[in-house]
């Protein structure tokens, strides 16, 4: 066997080893699991606002309209991301009744997202999944509350088995209870858009 072949084999082996390592790293780069926490809307809005402000500084007259339009657009973007941003007013019904919001009729339109409106996680949005959503202190929960008044598996929200498109909230025997307004939850209860749930220091609201 010629010297050249042996040298090529020797270097080829090393090259292959490193190719292997780089392909492993390439696999790892795309290997994501767990939960993705993204901050949308706000950043987009801030960027647009900054842009508009720069524009405004250059040409004050037409920018007033432009900035207004941009703010509106940003508001729409934030609203699409389920954001309680400034343009979309947040009104948590204080009387406790599961009141429908935004003028929609009772029972019309199923909720699609759960928004945290009070508490340390304010602003967090979770899409409702058909498999159900578990809320509590355990890390396995979809919404993990860091709150001494929350139980490990506090409550869950899942599709109503009797009513298509409806959602039901159920307390999982928590110590301090889940409240809809002032009523403590004792059995599974259907929820709709605008229903607010209170768990310890956290207030959650269902949105369409």
């Amino acid at each position: 066997m010629s010297e050249l072949t042996l040298t090529l084999l020797r270097l080829g082996l090393l090259a292959l080893l490193w190719i292997f390592i780089f392909s492993v790293v390439a696999v790892l780069r795309t290997d994501l699991y767990g939960t993705a926490v993204s901050r949308r809307g706000q950043r987009k809005a801030a960027k647009r606002q900054a842009k508009e402000q720069r524009k405004a500084a250059r040409a004050p007259q037409p920018a007033a309209v432009g900035a207004g339009g941009a703010a509106g657009a940003a508001g729409v973007a934030a609203g699409a991301a389920g954001a309680p941003g400034a343009p979309v007013p947040v009104s948590a019904p204080a009387d406790g009744a599961p009141a429908p919001r935004w003028g929609r009729g009772r029972g019309k339109g199923a909720p699609t997202t759960l928004v945290v409106t009070e508490g340390p996680l304010t602003g967090t949005t979770l899409p409702l999944r058909s498999g159900g959503l578990l809320i509590g202190r355990n890390p396995e929960c979809a919404l993990v509350l860091d709150d001494d008044y929350a139980s490990g598996r506090h409550c869950r929200i899942y599709p109503d088995p009797t009513n298509r498109g409806g959602w039901v909230v159920e307390d999982l025997g928590s110590t301090n209870g889940t409240f809809i307004g002032r009523d403590k939850l004792t059995s599974a209860r259907p929820v709709e858009i605008g229903t607010t749930l209170r768990i310890g220091k956290t207030v959650l609201e269902l949105r369409g």
Binding site: L32, Y33, A36, S38, T122, T125, L126, A142
Partner: peptide, 17 residues
């Protein structure tokens, strides 16, 4: 602050393996 928490749906990656 607007934060969205979404569970990622992982792929099995058996073909990469």
């Amino acid at each position: 602050m607007t934060t969205t928490v979404e569970p990622l749906t992982p792929r099995t990656r058996r073909n990469s393996e």
